[in-house]
Design a protein around this nucleic acid. Structure first.
Lengths: 238, 238
DNA sequence: CTCTGCTTATTGGTATTACCAAATTATATA
DNA sequence: TATATAATTTGGTAATACCAATAAGCAGAG
């Protein structure tokens, strides 16, 4: 009934106004904003509050500033700059933290999928497995099918939290798959190894063998971590 | 041959330093940064330059500020969990899916904490364990200490992603603890059982026994799920 | 007329000081 | 022990000053 009142900072209001003007097209990419001192007067605020708004606009990729030159609207084709989670996952170290999380979630996921998967869900896994095979034969990377295969397994757990988690992590799962797969692009044997590992997981789920599914997924995850260690030339405790 | 020289603003350097500290896990979600005047002195910059850095960190989702209260590290994994959390809000039963995920994350967490915990982290766990004891003696519910104890274990894994995820889930962990504990409020024996389970986990970590820590946490989690089943009078596949 | 170098003006970046306002903590009182 | 009040802490904004990078204007040489 009652909404919590969140008082707005002056710099927040300035930020919203300038952002709105940019997004509406009134200020176009490359165009210059009025000089800070002038704009502050126009808005009826101090340079401090204006600059704080401008820092936020800068951080999110709307504008850029040239010392002594002026403040300009950025072209938005580059998109908004990375959020905190994107900055976080971008780092090599975070990939290993993510792999630790994935290992525990996805081994359990395989175990539980072997118990709970419907025929349709198993078919869905097979579909992505087939796509990986085709990609292998064609010399394609196949990272999208790989990530989708893992997502299909999480669906088969019927755990809505895991499904949401895996869906939201999908972009980074795909990225990891890409990193690993593009390195073994030229090595058909590794490609075949990877395909075999996914097949082993699939067969264990098909056989309704939870322990086997768990172990096969564990083997796969550890293989990925090894490859990542090789790629990043790092040693991380797992 | 020649690289374009991009001079760094002071506020950019401040931003990079604070960001790095957060991403590395040295500052954990919910933790407070030093007050601005103090931090500016420490960094040897003006409050103006510091605040400009802080606005950028805020804009990207690393930190948040409370007027009169302080500057705090934000949970970075909000985007990963928001849609899953919406499920709990909609359906009470979804809490069982959360418990499944907690079971696997926290058993691994206990295992890994037993391997990696520093003395300070173990002390921190003990602090919350003591608070639970005092709550038990005083006939208080003690759900906040309970949830903090679990969070402290996740801190000891040194997995930054898990730390943020567990902090995101803190409210729900606390809520589960409250539901379970307030039912056994009048039953001193159950209260003692719960305290004992937490103590067992703590001792296993103190003893640096990963397998034992894992098993004690598993026992604890299964106990909680049983209690929740009783409370919800529901039968859910585990 | 064009190019180069120098000077001046403009504009972003930071520092300092002061004060306001919201939250937190400490203290006094019922 | 609980509540109300006062004091302190801490973020938010304003004003002023000055530094530093860029842009624009101008003079002189070729």
């Amino acid at each position: 009934m009652f909404q919590k009142i969140k008082p707005k900072k002056i710099s927040d209001e300035v930020y919203e106004q300038i952002k709105s003007i940019i997004l509406s097209g009134k200020l176009k990419p490359g165009e210059k904003l009025p000089p800070e001192r002038e704009l502050a007067l126009e808005l009826g605020v101090s340079r401090t509050a204006l600059r704080e708004a401008i820092q936020r606009l800068d951080a999110q990729g709307f504008i850029y500033q040239v010392h002594g030159g002026g403040t300009f609207v950025k072209t938005i084709t580059n998109g908004i700059l990375d959020s905190a989670i994107e900055e976080f996952v971008k780092r090599d170290e975070a990939i290993f933290d993510l792999m630790e999380i994935r290992k525990i979630l996805e081994t359990w996921g395989a175990y539980t999928a072997a118990q709970r998967a419907t025929e349709e869900e198993i078919s869905n896994m097979e579909k992505f497995l087939n796509e990986m095979f085709i990609a292998k034969e064609r010399g394609e990377i196949g990272h999208l099918s790989d990530a989708n295969f893992h997502l299909a397994i999480s669906h088969a757990t019927h755990n809505v939290m895991l499904i949401h988690l895996m869906k939201n992590l999908f972009y980074w799962i795909e990225k990891v798959s890409y990193e690993v797969r593009s390195r073994m692009y030229t090595n058909p044997e590794s490609h075949a190894d990877l395909y075999q590992q996914h097949t082993d997981v699939y067969i264990a789920i098909l056989e309704r063998n939870p322990e086997k599914a768990y172990n096969k997924m564990l083997t796969h995850m550890e293989y990925i971590v090894c490859e990542l260690n090789r790629i990043f030339k790092k040693n991380k405790k797992i």
